[in-house]
Design a binder for these strands. Structure first.
Lengths: 186, 186
DNA sequence: CTTGAAATGTTAGCGACTAACATTTCTAGG
DNA sequence: CCTAGAAATGTTAGTCGCTAACATTTCAAG
């Protein structure tokens, strides 16, 4: 179910899309243009990516984060637990991933519709975390509050990192975002 | 610039839209249907509301919150400051507002695109808070983290309130959401 | 009344996205 | 090498949100 041909066109779409997005902006780029540049039909584009924004927005971290949250001591308050879990799951991203990530983040900051897509994407992660916490007896409302606060903090840091380029690594960024939510100051 | 005629059609659009949304869902309702039910043209709809979701999503709290945040003691950590500010601005919503709010929130929880619209809507509030904090010397990144965490927590609580109806008041809800972000436990 | 501006209608179109059906392209088996 | 059969792509036609340019109606003040 992952034939070489599929992977090839998928990569071509991705290349063409990123190129056009960076040259003329996300909103100014139509799916038709992407399809033309990739040598395919608009229809084929949507067979590989469900939406236009899916080219940029993909969240492969959901299961890892939720699992890491569940692995934290269950007697901690919900916020502290998700905080430590996310830190464990995201705290050691290798600097190699930074380069490609930066391109995508820089693009996402450009358009509100893209940030909206990111928000939808994080919902899945949030629900996964909530599920973990609720399974351990945490009140659903408290779980939702804790999860969304931690996710929003890291997302905000990520977007700020995209707009104002600094040479901070992604891992440092996550640490800084979550440190501010720590219950007691060091 | 607020003639009686304008207000009347605006109200008719709002009535028709809420009615249709509740009867057949947000996504299943087209602007054409709303326009028909309101006795107008789709074009006229968009002259009163910039987008379909604008009928449900409106955030009139921005300036109050930012101001309240600025009014908190400047020597507190950013998170604690926005937390107390939001508590001051939103902590005493009258129960009268609850009924109409509940209808809207219940609808918003139905559709991902609507929740995304809410997220984009809160961006303005977030920027207003960040501006306040930065003006007092707080690092922009830290300000963004604090503001987004507090806003996300209250939004999450609000949406949970919409899905699982309880007889908690809006003010109680805000208190509960923000209490979890308090730096030291009582 | 009448006049002039505000509000609405008309037409035409773009862009994201979908469904049903036809067609090409690769890939495995003989 | 060649030929099924499936996977990938193309075609066509359409819906829905949304916009622009221009014509038309409605209403309130003189």
């Amino acid at each position: 179910m992952a034939t070489p041909r599929t992977l090839r066109t998928r990569a071509r779409i991705l290349d063409a899309a990123l190129d056009l997005f960076e040259r003329q902006g996300y909103d100014a780029t139509t799916v038709n243009q992407i399809a033309d540049a990739a040598g395919i039909t608009p229809m084929t584009f949507f067979r590989h990516f469900p939406t236009k924004d899916a080219v940029l927005v993909t969240d492969p971290y959901d299961p890892l984060i939720a699992q890491a949250v569940g692995a934290q001591p269950a007697d901690l308050p919900p916020l502290e637990r998700t905080r430590l879990g996310m830190l464990a799951a995201l705290g050691d991203i290798t600097p190699t991933e930074d380069a490609t990530a930066r391109r995508r983040v820089a693009l996402v900051t450009q358009s509100p519709s893209l940030r909206a897509a990111v928000a939808i994407g994080t919902e899945a992660t949030q629900e996964a975390i909530v599920e973990q916490l609720v399974a351990d007896g945490v009140d659903p409302l408290d779980a939702a509050i804790a999860a969304s606060a931690c996710l929003a903090a890291t997302t905000a840091a990520l977007l700020a990192w995209g707009t104002a380029p600094s040479d901070v690594t992604l891992a440092d960024l996550v640490h800084r975002a979550l440190a501010q939510l720590a219950l007691e100051k060091p």
